[in-house]
């Protein structure tokens, strides 16, 4: 098993004595993974990422990055991390290249690397246009270029698709997958929309009100999803259907009968039982329970 790139142990944080923002977060990001850090707005994603990057001090618990405590080797650790926290952090009076040049020497990057990252994010031809004249999407892409400047081992992107149009979101998704695949970059990407990240992540962490609700691989989440899936059935006599399907532990769901859904063969078996007992089957439908719905269910059931 890979050593985790990020490992937090019972990480808790208080903005004030009365307000516990994070509660015992055990985040574990495996090397080479794309980790989707999900939660509604205000759930503690940015606070967690700010603590990991050392923007906030004095948490309870511990944080290890690349197997080291951040404060024991802050500069060495930060040299290997590219980050974008919340909104773009750019100097509006400078051009795209000048913005990168501000940090070029700090990260020990070459002039060629500046051109390379601008090209990667599609901003190679912005010339003397200053950032204040950029659209929000361009600013977001330049922020990603800045995060890529050190050719980082770990890329932390907090809500990177904010302000991007659908085409920009797709481009970003492809870029993240490419960086992970071709450069072996470990990527943590936070979002409040599961649908936005589920197509690219390998691991998922779901946070709500400062507590982790779920952490694991995407397939773990999908099997968790299947466990919760239901099959909705509507027939000419739902009372009789309820009795016939007693082995499946049915529940009454408004005008339908609902049973736990396992696989498609089960649908065929149930339909056969119902029709053999002269029932007209009007509806046999897996209840909407995609990952997005599961995310909403998970977070809303805890609210």
């Amino acid at each position: 098993m890979n050593n985790p790139v990020i490992k937090t142990n019972a990480l808790s944080y208080y903005y004030s004595a009365q307000e516990k923002t994070l509660s015992e977060i055990n985040l574990q990001v495996e090397r080479g993974s794309i980790y989707g850090f999900l939660g509604p707005n205000g759930s503690g994603k940015t606070t967690t990422l700010s603590l990991i990057l050392g923007l906030l001090d004095s948490p309870d618990g511990s944080i290890e990055i690349f197997g080291q405590h951040l404060h024991s080797n802050r500069i060495g650790v930060l040299k290997k991390i590219g980050s974008l926290i919340e909104s773009p952090s750019l100097y509006a009076h400078l051009t795209a290249k000048e913005n990168l040049n501000v940090y070029r020497a700090v990260y020990g990057a070459s002039k060629a690397r500046v051109e390379e990252v601008l090209h990667i994010v599609g901003l190679g031809d912005t010339g003397k246009k200053t950032v204040k004249k950029f659209s929000l999407g361009m600013k977001q892409r330049l922020s990603i270029a800045l995060a890529l400047l050190p050719d980082p081992e770990l890329l932390i992107l907090d809500e990177p698709s904010n302000g991007l149009d659908p085409a920009g979101i797709i481009e970003l998704r492809e870029l993240i997958k490419r960086l992970n695949r071709e450069h072996g970059m470990t990527i943590v990407i936070s979002s409040h929309l599961l649908g936005e990240v589920e197509k690219m992540v390998s691991h998922v962490g779901i946070i709500l009100k400062g507590k982790m609700l779920f952490q694991g691989t995407l397939s773990d989440l999908q099997s968790f999803q299947r466990k919760g899936a239901r099959l909705l059935i509507n027939t000419s006599d739902n009372e009789k259907a309820f009795e016939l399907l007693r082995d499946h532990q049915p529940e009454k769901a408004e005008e339908n009968v609902s049973i736990a859904f396992h696989d498609l063969q089960q649908v065929a078996n149930i339909t056969r039982i119902l029709t053999q007992h002269a029932l007209d089957v009007y509806l046999v439908c897996p209840q909407k329970n995609d990952l997005e719905q599961l995310f909403i269910d998970l977070t809303s059931s805890q609210s």
Binding site: S50, G54, K79, I85, E86, S89, L90, Y103, V106, L146
Partner: peptide
């Protein structure tokens, strides 16, 4: 420019 966070997460 809201750039303090970028300054403080850079290796300086």
């Amino acid at each position: 420019n809201s750039t303090w966070k970028q300054v403080l997460t850079s290796p300086q």
